[in-house]
């Protein structure tokens, strides 16, 4: 038996909007730790890792570990039927073939049940080693979204370079080139507006802008985004989900042949 009650139901709605275009079908794993998902896109270029910790739910009952295969497009359709202020409860029976999403309006005058069919998904779980990253950039998520959107009108690939001067986002295409440099700026009124560049070693990596743009669908979840770069590893683009967890996107770099 599984019963997870999330008072801030809009978080789950936003989470689905952040991953449904990247991944079609995925297993949601439920354990005493929390509600989680790990999935790759169909071409195995990107991986998304979601964790919503059990402490973040008002009520969290998960009698035993459960993996529920869901079509994220269908799950998104159902969650779109929840109001932004609704409380969402996820319910499932052990060994059942459905999951129920219950939506309660804040005044308790409307209660809706949506039952969705589960599916068997043969997914491969990958081990993500803990890594020391060469450079970590934290910036406003809206700024990162703007940069990815702007650069994708010029080129297909972004080169992200971190030096002691700052972080540079570059692209090139048929019509020309573009370079956007951000310098560290911590003298801001609101901490979420800061640009913080932690450089242990300079790094420069190339990535497909199509994927970066897809990751920025998570922008409504968090005011800030953290980009972790190492020359040997996929980039990690992380958005915190309120106080309860995160969405991390891993993207394999483009490599010179």
């Amino acid at each position: 038996m599984l019963e997870l009650r999330l008072v801030q139901g809009s978080l789950l709605k936003k989470v689905l909007e952040s991953i449904k275009d990247l991944v079609n079908d995925a297993n949601f794993d439920c354990s005493s730790t929390g509600f989680s998902l790990q999935a790759m896109d169909s071409s195995h270029v990107a991986l998304v890792s979601l964790l919503l910790r059990s402490e973040g739910f008002e009520h969290y009952r998960c009698d035993r570990n459960l993996s529920m295969g869901m079509n994220l497009g269908n799950m998104s359709k159902m969650l779109k039927c929840a109001g932004n202020d609704d409380i969402i409860t996820i319910k499932a029976d052990d060994g059942g073939d459905t999951v129920t999403f219950m939506f309660e309006s804040p005044t308790q005058d409307k209660i809706a049940d949506f039952e969705m069919k589960l599916m068997d998904i043969d997914s491969e779980h990958l081990g993500i080693p803990d890594a020391e990253y060469h450079s970590i950039v934290r910036m406003p998520s809206s700024e990162f979204q703007r940069i990815c959107k702007d650069l994708s009108t010029i080129g297909d690939t972004v080169v992200i370079s971190v030096t002691k001067e700052g972080v540079k986002f570059s692209t090139a295409g048929d019509i020309g080139t573009a370079n956007i440099v951000l310098r560290q700026n911590t003298t801001v009124d609101k901490p979420e507006d800061a640009i913080v560049i932690e450089m242990n070693e300079p790094v420069s990596l190339s990535f497909a802008l199509r994927y970066m743009n897809s990751f920025t669908k998570a922008t409504p979840l968090s005011d800030t985004v953290t980009i972790s770069l190492s020359s040997e590893l996929p980039v990690v683009v992380e958005y915190k989900v309120a106080e309860m967890g995160y969405i991390r996107y891993y993207l394999a770099p483009k490599i010179e042949e």
């Binding site: 790759m40 195995h44 491969e124 990958l126 690939t157």
Partner: peptide, 14 residues
């Protein structure tokens, strides 16, 4: 042009 890497060449099956 650089070649797109595959995530599975970085992270191994758990």
């Amino acid at each position: 042009d650089p070649k797109q890497g595959n995530i599975m060449s970085f992270f191994k099956k758990a």
